[in-house]
């Protein structure tokens, strides 16, 4: 197999006396969806917070595109092309899709906001993900459904030329049809060459979309498997700690 885009080895993090991550190894590949599963308290959130620079790891080696890096701020991870789509999405409901996608990095020309350039780019980003459910890119986010909002949040990371997109429970609050749409979107995102790390509690979703499955159990990585080599029951076994490699 080719070199992973992101490789963690021996990553540790503790909060006072509590060891949350006890030496994690994880490989994330470009063009693949890696699902990160595990029960509550397994350390999933801590793992992604370290990768996004919000809460740096205490120990361990992080390699990005084969080179060792030290990520300590969110700005740094953003500059490297690591984007996190959090569960609450962080969208402004009073702004429209274009405005949200360019929030904080608005383009200026002729001394004013370059609305047309931003609109064209936002439109292209959505089209590149074959998004068809959005009626207008000038719709306010308040009028969008949960799935459409998730779409906007993911498309925003595409717009930023993300190389790694970390999705925190992208389907948690969605209905059946919208879950399907978002999962298709996740698949297309990976197919376009992005490395996707998806946190999920829903194994049906995981098996539908993931290439690799990484299982955390109480701060240790109990298994990283290819999805085609494993099955539902085994993964549940790893998650609950009943089964070990």
């Amino acid at each position: 197999m080719s070199t992973p885009l992101v490789e963690l080895s021996g990553v540790k993090k503790s909060f006072g006396p509590v060891d949350v991550l006890k030496g994690i190894d994880l490989k994330i590949y470009a063009g693949k969806v890696t699902a990160l599963v595990g029960d509550n308290g397994a350390g999933k959130s801590t793992l992604i917070k370290g990768l996004s620079g919000v809460q740096p790891y205490d120990e361990g080696v992080v390699k990005f595109a084969g080179e060792e890096v030290n990520i300590t701020t969110a700005r740094q991870s953003g500059a490297m092309g690591i984007e996190v789509v959090y569960q609450d999405l962080a969208l402004c409901e009073n702004l429209d899709i274009v405005q949200n996608m360019f929030l904080g990095r608005e383009e200026i020309s002729q001394l004013t906001l370059d609305e047309s350039s931003m609109e064209a780019q936002a439109s292209r980003a959505l089209q590149s993900l074959s998004v068809k459910t959005v009626k207008s890119v000038r719709q306010k986010v308040s009028s969008l459904s949960g799935g459409q909002r998730q779409t906007v949040a993911i498309a925003r990371s595409v717009l930023r030329d993300a190389k790694v997109v970390i999705l925190d429970e992208p389907t948690a609050a969605l209905g059946v049809a919208q879950t399907e749409q978002v999962l298709n979107l996740v698949r297309r995102l990976a197919d376009s060459g992005v490395a996707v790390l998806m946190i999920s509690h829903n194994l049906v979703d995981v098996f539908q979309v993931a290439d690799d499955i990484a299982v955390l159990y109480l701060g240790t990585m109990v298994a990283q498997l290819e999805a085609k080599d494993t099955n539902h029951n085994d993964v549940i076994g790893y998650i609950t700690g009943l089964k070990k490699l």
């Binding site: 700005r75 959090y86 609450d88 999405l89 962080a90 969208l91 402004c92 409901e93 009073n94 702004l95 405005q99 929030l103 904080g104 990095r105 608005e106 906001l113």
Partner: peptide, 19 residues
């Protein structure tokens, strides 16, 4: 102006967007 609206709509989202 855009950032003003963003802060009014969702300060946390604005903060995360680097505003």
């Amino acid at each position: 102006g855009r950032h003003l609206f963003a802060v009014g709509g969702n300060p946390e989202a604005a903060r995360r967007a680097g505003i």
